[in-house]
Amino acid sequence: MEAATVTTAAVRDLDLDLVERHRYGDTQAFDEIYHRFDHMVFNLAFRLSGDGEQAADLTQEIFLRVFRYIGQFRGRSSLKTWIFRIAVNHCRGCLARHHLPTQPLAEEPTEEEWGAVTIADPGRGPEELAVAADEGRRVAAGLSRLPASFREAVVLRDLEGLSYEEIAEVLGVRIGTVRSRIARGREQLRASLEGSQ
């Protein structure tokens, strides 16, 4: 518990240090912030929008908002939850504006499209990797069919690894609500996966 507290304090110091550097005109600071959180923000946007291109646009807009408001960050929460909160709010606003319903994920973006490199896991054989990838795709499709409020909570917990307290902070709800949304999301996902088998 003590180690966790020390880690949290260290992360918070790092957050505040980055923000201070940005405030004093260090242009590298925002670059560091971007590279620290771009994966998380992009993945969140991708799971909430269900579309790679749109996720890229949302990520860009989210970081513009972060750039604009970062001077107001006072370290009352971690920078991670602060950015996630902006990200969730922005995704909600944009997706509502475009009246996008919850859409099943059509296709994951391919590595060829974005020039990403896949590193093979040496500990797993090709068959096992294929089965895991197939299961991952089925679960991702089920996830994209969940109601947005459940999906947000499940993504933040099971994909991004946030604690219930952090999720409550990001979504602006009580921990009891987070607990309920995660459980109901998982139940619906289980039912959806059983139905698709």
Binding site: H39, F42, T59, W114, A116, A132, V139, A140, L143, L193
Partner: peptide, 30 residues
């Protein structure tokens, strides 16, 4: 056990990397 299986399945969901050109685009907009 069922919840555990769902969580395990979620662990196998791919986490795509942001496209490589996005950093340059964000930098430009910023």
């Amino acid at each position: 056990q069922q919840f555990r299986r769902v969580v395990h399945g979620l662990g196998r969901v791919d986490r795509p990397l942001p496209p490589p050109w996005l950093a340059a685009r964000v930098r430009q907009q910023v």
